[in-house]
Nucleic acid binder design. Structure first.
Lengths: 142, 142, 142, 142
DNA sequence: GTGGTCTAGACCACG
DNA sequence: GTGGTCTAGACCACC
């Protein structure tokens, strides 16, 4: 599982962790029964305070995504994949809705929105290709 | 000018006011020289704390969108329409970018995103039509 | 609202706060729209760390009992009384069930349990009377 | 001796083991001189970590309930039956007291408490009957 | 003034 | 080793 923290796009770190764990479960990068990295390890990996990770894991337990296995850590629950897959698009939809609502309330036309979306999708792909080629270059160099 | 506060979509109220004033200028609902409602009137209308409106107006002055006219309040500057029109799509683009970035980082495909966008656009149109028909009804009743 | 923290009967402080707030709502000591004491004030009153109170209030928000009023604090939601009243006995029942289950699994008879309950109820009443008479004495002294 | 671990009713596993051994002694399911199952057998039977069983046995030795017999394991001491019988109700009373105290502090009336107790006793009996009939069925099938 | 986030670190319970 | 609780305090955003 590969997490990526964005300080700060306005979303608190603990929530970014929550969401990404849910996405990882939805994408089967995390399977039922898998242990999530320990609080301390995750904190080290992300270079954040252990309490921040702890808070995220606590929320994930409250959501029924993780369950504590006494003394051994936190594991993905059997219900998690269902939950997370059904939430997968909703998590994005919710944020998207807020943006589009503002746009429409302020006379941005649907076509303008579609254009924005396409241009941003292209931009993201461009970035990704760039990273990909960097990776390739790095591998070639290595 | 018709403002609409959303408590809370995560955007602070004062910023919602700012943005909506800018959109209103871009859409010519507010023209050069027009006065914005006084702090206390706006606060009453939106049912928010006057300090909050005050903060928004302060930011708008710093952005060069509003200018104080001694004794009479705040008016739209001559430079405002240009600024606001060029910012119009960028304000949306910025927020949209953050959402799409999360989506792409978590294996949501471009097509899934497009579908989400279309369904949300439809949903918004439906809501608007509903409100419109209510308005018509209200007018007929009146 | 009068809270009473028991350090430590095994229940974490933040959870004691949660439960007592819920009981207070159920008993109408806290009504819809009432503000709960601020984090800092409550922390001072109970002589605990503000973060501990904060955690309790956060949980109560997640439970839909409290709602933040931006800049002014946390208020009891309209749904809270219903929730809390229906939870009132359940919160006790849950804890009671665990105790009785252990008793029955280990051959404590129903009659022995009833006797224990009665003797403890009496003991509590005795304590209460004692406090009451102390209060009276204090008042008389004053 | 038939132990039953409840993960997790809040009581640590090692303490559940302790308590149940004591109850077993009080109920003469374990008699003076009887050996308790070895750490590893007990651990296997309960599907818990051997360290956990070990900790429980250590506590029971400290309490004078078990005594090590060189080379053969742990046996019930001669003093154990007396101790355990006198502790039998107290172990329950202690837990019960905490629950009732919370109830009374939060305006649950004695009659409400009695009703809760009765309904939970009935519920437990119902569960037991169910299990009993299952056992009978199993025996008949066998 | 309000609550929220994050950091830092101590201590404990559990396995 | 694991996570949980609590304390302490800094900083921020908002009203």
């Amino acid at each position: 599982m590969q997490l990526h923290i964005e300080t700060s796009n306005g979303i608190p770190i603990y929530e970014q962790i929550c969401r990404q764990v849910k996405f990882a479960v939805a994408n089967k990068a995390l399977q039922v029964g898998d242990h999530v990295p320990s609080v301390r390890e995750m904190a080290g990996r992300l270079a954040v305070n252990p309490n921040t990770v702890s808070r995220a894991y606590r929320d994930l337990q409250a959501d029924g995504v993780l369950i504590p296995i006494r003394g051994t850590g936190l594991a993905v629950t059997p219900e998690a994949p269902g939950k997370c897959q059904s939430e997968r698009l909703d998590m994005i939809r919710e944020r998207l809705r807020l943006v589009l609502a503002e746009a429409r309330h302020n006379q941005i036309t649907p076509d303008e929105i579609r254009q924005l979306v396409e241009s941003e999708l292209q931009r993201l792909d461009a970035l990704e290709d760039e990273n990909a080629s960097q990776l390739v270059t790095a591998e070639e160099t290595a």
